[in-house]
């Protein structure tokens, strides 16, 4: 009797795993099957000549190009804003903060990491209202506010990966610098940070992925369906994930739906690419430590 029960264990674990893989495979397979035919130059550039579109000489009306440029601008701006603060905070947490301060700061960053993205979006929206009433009636939801809110969203990821990377450095390596007379500052910049560069980089890639895929934040802070290429950071913009959301609810004809599938495939590939490289870097890293030991 018991023996049969234990056989069930293997059925359960393999069954669960296959179910999960099948479900994920179905999601990805469905997208590829329905959308693959639509992938091509026209999906991105519509009727506009590629070179003219890339040089921003001619606007693209029926392609994903403006949304892709919007997402790129969003990612660059928000990671650009979050990176210096996130890295410095991670270094402070790993190298300077101790005792009570350390656990208090960790708690705050845990809370920030658990924050739903729609709440972060609502925060960005309330900042807009505040600025609009206090400073200038010309301030509306825009690319800048979206990027700022996304920076808030990915800040805890950057802090955590930097901190974890620094704290994982073995004690012997950590002590070599000071033993040779290096100051704490020299040790951080010439030994510790260069050594954890790869895992910090993988954290940055994950943050880029989060910025590119998040929809809830930008929905509340200035993304629109058609704005063309963003002209300034104070204007509206398009983005891939919002386009996918919009098409799923409002598509008018089969062409638009095909573009929706195409956009979903592009976003999926982009995220897979970023996550793939990030994990590959982490893998290489752990192997290196392993060989050292």
């Amino acid at each position: 009797m018991m023996r049969h029960a234990f056989k069930l264990f293997h059925v359960w674990v393999w069954g669960s795993t296959l179910l999960l893989l099948a479900a994920t495979g179905t999601v990805i397979g469905f997208l590829l099957v329905r959308g693959w035919a639509g992938i091509g130059r026209e999906l991105v550039f519509g009727e506009t000549p590629v070179l003219a579109a890339l040089m921003l000489q001619r606007p693209v009306f029926d392609g994903l190009f403006p949304a892709m440029v919007g997402t790129l601008a969003l990612v660059l701006l928000s990671v650009g804003m979050a990176l210096p603060v996130g890295l410095a905070t991670g270094i402070y947490l790993a190298e300077y903060a101790t005792g009570r301060l350390y656990s208090l700061l960790s708690l705050f960053f845990d809370i920030l990491a658990g924050m739903p993205s729609i709440v972060v979006g609502l925060f960005g929206f309330s900042i807009t209202i505040f600025l609009h009433h206090r400073f200038s009636g010309k301030i509306y939801p825009c690319l800048f506010i979206s990027a700022l809110s996304l920076a808030v969203l990915v800040l805890p990821y950057l802090i955590r990966t930097t901190q974890a990377a620094l704290e994982a450095i073995p004690a012997d390596l950590r002590l070599i610098g000071p033993s040779l007379g290096a100051t704490r500052f020299q040790n951080i910049f010439h030994v510790l940070v260069p050594h954890s560069l790869k895992s910090i980089l993988s954290g940055i890639l994950l943050a880029i992925g989060r910025c590119a895929e998040d929809t809830a934040v930008i929905m509340l802070t200035g993304v629109v369906v058609s704005a063309g290429i963003p002209k300034s950071i104070w204007g509206n913009f398009e983005a891939l994930p919002f386009y996918i959301y919009y098409i799923s609810a409002q598509y008018a004809d089969a062409d638009e739906l095909t573009r929706g599938y195409g956009a979903a495939i592009i976003l999926l590939l982009l995220c897979a690419f970023l996550f793939g490289i990030a994990f590959w870097l982490q893998r290489r890293l752990s192997q290196r430590w392993f060989e050292r030991v």
Binding site: V85, L112, S126
Partner: peptide, 27 residues
């Protein structure tokens, strides 16, 4: 430079820690 970097890092940590508080206060 040592002094400046230490307080620079600390300032960044304070800014980061202020964010979850600021979200709460705005709401």
């Amino acid at each position: 430079s040592e002094f400046l970097t230490k307080y620079g890092f600390m300032a960044a940590a304070i800014i980061s820690a202020a964010v979850p508080l600021a979200i709460f206060i705005f709401m």
